[in-house]
Amino acid sequence: MKQVMKLLTTGLVGFLLTACNVTKVTRMGADESIDLSGAWNDTDSQLVAREMIGDALNRPWLSNFSARRGKTPAVIVGSVRNLSHEHINVRTFVAELERELVNSGHVEFVASRNDRNEVREERMDQDLHASEDTRNAAGQERGADFMLQGQINTIIDVNDNKQVRYYQVDLTLVSMADNRKVWLGQKKIKKFVENSKFRY
């Protein structure tokens, strides 16, 4: 009996030690939600962008602008500041916002400051090297009617191994013509994170 127990114990310890060193990879859908640390993740980024842009497009500023000007508004994404407790990759969040806006079909979207410079360089290059019928002239850019700005804030309450993480994303749409704020959007996320006190 003692021998059997020894063998079983050795086997179990061996298994545990081996199991610790195995790297396992499972492919999953980009829209599947998995929370590992409780920090801001891709799901939060997608969810907030989708919901906030959905809200923005259902507000009266859009129909008011279209009725007054007779065209769809052009929007540019300005800065979205990360004032939270985490190093959030704001660029992916901004990319989500841009995607949701463009795909809605209700607004036109103009390239950001950095992207514009690259396009302008290419246009200057076209002036020199492209044939006349394929050349795009300078001075024909569509100016933005509105700028989307925002910030991500957090409040974190911590006690021992427990944390409550509260995220608040505020977005503002500002009219380029007169600095009026035509839409204020807010999305809140609250998470309770509990870390284990023990490990093997």
């Binding site: 004032l83 407790h85 985490e86 957090t154 974190i156 911590v158 021992d160």
Partner: peptide
């Protein structure tokens, strides 16, 4: 600068954790 501010906030959370 914003990333530096993140570290400030994280340090505050950590300080709260140690305060006990």
């Amino acid at each position: 600068l914003d990333e530096a501010r993140v570290e400030v906030l994280q340090a505050q959370v950590k300080a709260k954790k140690f305060s006990g």
